[in-house]
Amino acid sequence: MKRDWLPLLLIPALMIGALPLIGSPASWVTLTVAGLAMGLMIFIMASGLTLTFGLMDVLNFGHGAFIAVGAFVAASVMLALAPWMTADSIWLNLAAIGPAVLAAMVVSGVLGLGFERVIVRPVYGQHLKQILVTTGGLIVAEQLLKVIWGPDQITLSRPTALRGAFLFGDIAIEKYRVLAVVVGLVVFAALALTLNRTRLGLLIRAGVENGEMVEALGYRIRRLFVGVFVVGSALAGLGGAMWGLYQETVTAAIGAQVAVLVFIVIIIGGLGSVGGCFVGALLVGLTANYIGFLAPKVALGSNILLMALVLLWRPQGLYPVAKR
């Protein structure tokens, strides 16, 4: 379709609209960066979910499990490498975070492979059962996390180099948020390049639109789907690891909590659309932070309101996917 810029414009519109309400430019910058960081972390977790839905009409209500697993695995690795985390060298810090994040992605990805086999595959095409079984998967996964890591929350602290904030006059920008923004943008760029510039990406986009025809061209969409599912799970693990560091605590319920935001984001974006997911995530992140500042009591309600407004404007989400 022709490039549709309107939804994209919502982001600057929201930013500019918030400025007079917030008043102080310094707070505005801080909140905006926080909103972008939060939005991009959600985007990382949501991108795979929206693609698997687009490809095979599968919505994994247990997606939160991968987020939680990523957070726990990363936390374990970082706790094991505690001396490097607290060292006063950014390189040692990164040497701890790198393996932690990698481990989170690998474990979540492998788990995704198993989840697809055991939980999702037997109920393809049966939406009701799919919702039930994947929710069941989430319940069991959450309990297993408690079996392995114990029922109590784990406290994490960020490595030395990522504590504190950059100061520009009276503007303070937390270092960790900058990192989150950078990682989020890198993931987005990688996904966008893959989807638009590679044959694999073409296949995925075509498959989202009409999987049956992709098969008639001789491609095995099942394999494609499993691949996307695994990558999506690994990204959820990455997002979970980042979220854990952001919150500095990890609990078994983290997955289910964040998954709600993830769902809102992919509904806003249009189920199946990665671009929409990106815009939706930023909108949700920014709104949550602005409203959290302006009217803290209704912060989470604001996301629902945002979703309702978007759906009133475009009932299929910002970027509806052309289906069949």
Partner: peptide, 30 residues
């Protein structure tokens, strides 16, 4: 279906089923 296609059978459906999001070029590349 993919295995059947790989034996050398091509199909033009009644609905055409072109990929609307992809360019003409990309449709043919696939």
């Amino acid at each position: 279906t993919p295995d059947i296609a790989r034996l050398g059978i091509a199909y033009v459906p009644e609905s055409m089923a072109i990929f609307a999001d992809l360019t003409v070029q990309e449709n043919l590349v696939l």
